[in-house]
Each structure stands twice: as structure tokens, then as C-alpha cells.
Simulated scan of single mutants.
Amino acid sequence: MAKKTRDKAAAPAGENPRRPCPCGSGKRYKACHGAGDDLIVTRPFEGLAAECDLVAMREFLPSATAPLPLREPGAAPVTLATVLPGAAAAVVRPDGTMLLGMQVQTRSGDLSADLAKALRWAQDAEPGSALSVVGPGIGGELVRIQDFLDPAATLDLTLHPDFGWWIPPSEDGSEPAPDVAASLERANAVIMPTEPVLAEGVRAAYWVDTGSKAHLRWVRPEPEEALVAALARLQARGELALADGARYAGSFRAHGLLVPVWDLDRELHAKEWAEPVAAFATRLDAALADDAPLTDAERRARDALAGKQVTLR
């Protein structure tokens, strides 16, 4: 009983039975997700500084890892990964190393709760175990990843050119089994080159080469209405393009956040977009700070931008 009391006291507002449910339904948590209903949580990583990083790892980063910033002092380290072999939810290697996967086979309506369940499973699992799917019987009392992470920490992401990190070096130098090597080869064959755009004031912006064209995908933390209004102001002034040859293509919604996308010149490397993206970030910050009503031209631009938005499910 004491443990349950501590859990509730430490939980964020969404997990308190008397507070609104984090899914946004308007119901109390006890009458919604606390009762076991599988409703969709629109913004599952809200409240975390790592929210944009988590959305990128879930939706479009192909091969990336990051230490999970756990808030508990002395907790065993856990590595978060975009995708694990077989799209597993979690893996505990023979040496006890714990990995959690973001891009999984199946999921519930609350990605945050799924990730927390996988973490709990990994912390109790035997070395050499794998959790293919997070089911309703995993994890016990409902918790969310916000209960475990430092809310102020972002992710220290490492992007890999392939999935070689799936197979840790063997002590005897032996090669992986043929089926493992074949799986690794298939995964590497479909990976899209992806690199972060590193610039001052820029985070969660990624250059992606799809083969036919290159894109900039930029996960933004602002509420959608405010971000779209700011983009509309820039569009009305002819300032929405990053540079010559960098056309604004539209945006997609993912887990409560908007991800603007630009088509880029494939001949330019990711590093060459750092300066244009930093300059755009300055323009966008100024537009976000402008609280004046939209002009007629800006409203027309906003309506046009709305036609270039899609939602990922």
C-alpha cells in the first residue's frame, strides 16, 4: 500500500486519479485511462524537454540511439533506440545492457505508457531476453515515461549510418549467425541517409535523403495554432523558404506536434544548410513573438498552409 501511495504522489498531474486524463478526453484519469480504457493520447510526451527528440525517433529517424535520461539516481543505464531487431519493444543483452525500441510492431493509444511498460519489463528481465510486444499484462499499475525521466533533459542522440550496433562485438571475434547477418543486411538496405542540422538555436531538425530528393524535417514544440500563425506571417512576407532551392513542402502532425518539411537541393550536404536554418530560426522566433492579429494576407497564407498539413496515425 505504501508503494502505491508513493507512486501516486510522485506522478504528474495526468496520473492523479482526481486530475484530468492526459489523453485530453476531459474525463478524470480514474474514469478514463485509469479505468483501463485504451483511448488515444494525442500528445504522449508532453511535459518533457525531450519531446521533440522522442517524436523524431518514433516517426522518421532510421537508426539512432540515446541514453535514456532517468531521474532516479544510480539507476542502471538504459539505451533508447529508434528500432530494434524484429521491431521489438525491449531487449536485454546477455551482458545486461538494456535497450528500448521506439518503432515497434504494435502499440496502444498511449505511447508514453507503452514505453514505461517496456522500461519496467527490461529492469526486471533476465539477460538475453527480448520483449516483442507490450501487452496489457506487462508492467502492472499504469505508469507513463514521464514518471521515470528527468523532465528537463533532452536526448543526446547518436545517428548511425547503418544498424551495425544491433550486434555487439563478440568476445571471441566470431561472425554473427547467418540469419542474424541476413536480417542486418535487409535493414541496412532500406536505411535513408539522415543527419542532424547543427546550428545555434536549432534542435530536432534533420536532413533526410530519400533517394529521389532531400528534405529538412523539423519537429517543433510550439502549439500548432501559434506555429501555423507564425509560418503564415513568414509566408505573407515571402520568407518561408529556407534559401534558393529550398521550398516549403508542408507539414505533418505527429503525436501532438507539427513537423514542417522543406524540399532541399540534394547536391548540398546537411552541413551546408546550418546557416540558412539558423537564419530561418531567428525569423521564426520573431514571428512567434508577434501577437498582433493576422492581416488579411496572413490569414490567406494560413489557410493555404492548412491545405499542406497531414496527420500521421
Rank of each mutant, 00 (worst) to 15 (best):
V133C: 08
V133L: 09
V133R: 06
V134R: 07
P136V: 15
G139M: 09
G140P: 05
G140C: 10
E141Y: 10
E141T: 11
E141G: 06
E141R: 14
E141F: 06
L142H: 12
L142G: 12
L142Y: 00
Q146Y: 02
D147T: 12
D147I: 12
D147N: 15
L149T: 02
D150Q: 15
P151H: 09
P151T: 09
A152E: 07
A153L: 10
A153P: 05
T154F: 06
L157Q: 01
L157F: 11
H160N: 14
P161W: 15
P161D: 08
D162R: 08
D162F: 13
F163H: 13
F163Y: 10
G164R: 11
W165T: 02
W166K: 00
I167W: 07
I167F: 06
P168Y: 01
P169C: 08
P169N: 07
P169D: 05
S170Q: 12
E171W: 14
E171D: 13
E171L: 12
D172T: 11
D172H: 11
S174D: 13
E175P: 04
A177G: 14
P178T: 01
D179S: 13
V180F: 13
A181C: 15
A182Q: 04
A182N: 02
A182D: 12
S183I: 15
L184R: 08
L184V: 03
L184T: 03
L184K: 07
E185Y: 01
E185H: 07
A187I: 11
A189E: 13
A189S: 14
V190E: 08
I191S: 10
I191M: 06
I191Q: 00
I191D: 14
M192F: 13
M192R: 15
T194Q: 09
T194D: 00
E195V: 03
E195Q: 14
P196K: 04
P196H: 13
V197I: 14
V197A: 00
L198D: 10
L198I: 06
L198T: 09
A199M: 03
A199G: 06
G201Q: 06
G201K: 14
V202C: 02
V202A: 01
A204W: 05
A204V: 06
A205H: 00
A205P: 01
Y206V: 13
W207I: 04
V208H: 11
V208P: 01
D209P: 02
T210R: 14
T210Y: 06
H215F: 15
W218I: 07
V219L: 09
V219G: 02
R220A: 12
R220W: 05
R220T: 01
P221Q: 13
E222D: 12
P223G: 14
E224M: 09
E225D: 15
L227K: 01
V228C: 09
V228H: 03
A230C: 11
L231H: 02
A232Q: 07
A232T: 09
Q235T: 10
Q235I: 00
Q235W: 07
A236E: 10
A236W: 04
R237S: 08
G238I: 07
E239I: 04
E239V: 07
L240I: 04
L240Y: 03
L240V: 04
A241V: 00
A241S: 12
A241G: 02
D244C: 06
D244L: 15
G245F: 07
G245H: 08
G245A: 03
A246F: 04
A246P: 08
Y248R: 13
S251K: 00
S251H: 12
S251W: 00
F252C: 04
F252K: 09
A254W: 08
A254Q: 08
H255Y: 14
H255F: 02
L258D: 02
L258M: 12
